[in-house]
């Protein structure tokens, strides 16, 4: 359960995968970071909009969720490595039998959650498989 300001504050990051980039060390961050762990106080951070294409690094299918998500079970959760480098956690919409390590995914706009029947709706990014994309990856 989030709250209105907490959701609102991250709308651009959640809708459009806006993260950060340190122009000093050329490292990309999503979720966004204020401080670059490589350069710390000497970092030069700027916003960066990620394309959203990525690869499934690992995944699970959740059958037992918290109250906010119990209507959605079963659903797939994955750690996805974006093509630009950073890794994020997100849902992959497909059958539990379909998801695999190494699967290429692309972003879609979906409902992430709702504050009950009366509260606001949290929109944002989930992922879907790019058809026929599973490739062996070296981790």
């Amino acid at each position: 359960m989030s709250t209105v300001p907490r959701f609102w504050r991250h709308i651009s990051q959640r809708y459009n995968l806006v993260g950060t980039h340190c122009s000093k060390c050329d490292e990309y961050y999503y979720p966004p970071r204020t401080i670059c762990p490589n350069c710390r106080r000497t970092a030069q951070m700027e916003d960066h909009k990620f394309k959203g294409k990525g690869t499934v690094i690992t995944y699970t299918t959740i059958y037992n969720a918290t109250d906010d998500f119990k209507r959605q079970t079963p659903y797939n959760l994955a750690i996805i490595e974006l093509d630009e480098g950073p890794r994020l956690t997100g849902q992959v919409i497909c059958s539990p039998n379909e998801i695999e390590i190494g699967m290429k995914v692309k972003p879609v706009f979906r409902i992430l959650g709702k504050e009950g029947d009366r509260g606001i709706i949290y929109y944002g990014t989930k992922f879907v498989p790019v058809e026929g994309s599973v490739q062996p990856i070296t981790l």
Binding site: Q72, I93, V108, F109, R110, I121
Partner: peptide, 15 residues
């Protein structure tokens, strides 16, 4: 889908 509504599908069409 369970997580689609008139807003999400409008966004996909607009994109």
């Amino acid at each position: 889908d369970t997580d689609e509504d008139a807003v999400t599908i409008a966004v996909e069409a607009a994109r």
